[in-house]
């Protein structure tokens, strides 16, 4: 039954997932091209100076991509469930309610993890050929909150979509916006280092919140 549920999630999301993969690879390719073009035009030493002494992180230009990926993944996975109340059928499957929600959310999280690991990991691996570990570390420290923001936006989207009461959806969206803004505060590379435990804790909380919406759903609240 677990496999069947996961297969259902895959059927729903596969094309959008592949499309996001293509977009991420294109975005990374664009940043890599910009670096290589700058290296040819101004020389590698100048690029080092810009990245190290001016704290320039080119990946900042695509910092909303993980956020959008999370929202799109959530919409693709959960909007079909809420159309014509199909989610009722899902909840009637011979699996515990907690297990169903956990499997669905885990599927989305793993897809995003794969997407972010392959695209950003591949990019940073390529970067490490031309730049020292300090620069790669600073870039990683800069994109980590953005990547966590992608997971947060996914969980928030799921929470908001699964909520059957419209007014509560709006309140959840307000809280969601405040939470997302915590992941996107402008700072120098490394400034999030003490915030990371708080961000991981917030993700844990967000993984629990869809349960509130499902309770409302089961109680038939409108």
């Amino acid at each position: 039954m677990n496999k069947a549920l996961l297969f259902k999630e895959w059927i729903k999301t596969r094309w959008m997932f592949l499309l996001m993969f293509v977009v991420f690879i294109l975005a990374m390719g664009y940043i890599a091209l910009r670096i290589s073009s700058a290296a040819r035009n101004v020389g590698m030493p100048h690029l080092w100076e810009v990245f190290i002494l001016k704290n320039v992180v080119l990946l900042d230009q695509i910092k909303v991509l993980p956020l959008l990926a999370g929202i799109i993944m959530g919409i693709t996975q959960f909007i079909p469930e809420m159309t014509k109340k199909r989610f009722k059928l899902t909840l009637h499957l011979p699996l515990g309610e907690n297990r169903i929600v956990c499997l669905m959310l885990s599927f989305g999280m793993v897809c995003l993890l794969l997407l972010f690991t392959v695209s950003y990991g591949g990019f940073l691996w390529g970067l490490s050929a031309d730049f020292p570990r300090e620069v790669v570390g600073a870039w990683f420290a800069t994109i980590l909150p953005q990547v966590l923001c992608g997971f947060a936006s996914y969980l928030l989207t799921a929470w908001i979509i699964l909520e059957p009461v419209w007014s509560q959806r709006i309140y959840n969206a307000v809280i969601g916006l405040l939470i997302l803004s915590l992941f996107m505060v402008q700072g120098v590379p490394g400034s999030y280092i003490y915030m990371l435990p708080f961000l991981f804790g917030t993700l844990l909380l967000l993984a629990l919140y869809p349960k509130i919406s499902i309770r409302h759903f089961k109680e038939g609240m409108q």
């Binding site: 080092w48 990245f51 190290i52 002494l53 704290n55 300090e134 280092i193």
Partner: peptide, 27 residues
């Protein structure tokens, strides 16, 4: 403030008016 801990070591007695950027950085 966090900084990237790599620094350029300039030639202090280059005998020139302007300092020249080195070709390396040190940790």
């Amino acid at each position: 403030t966090p900084v990237i801990e790599l620094y350029p070591m300039f030639e202090s007695c280059s005998g020139k008016v302007d300092l020249e950027n080195p070709s390396d950085m040190f940790r």
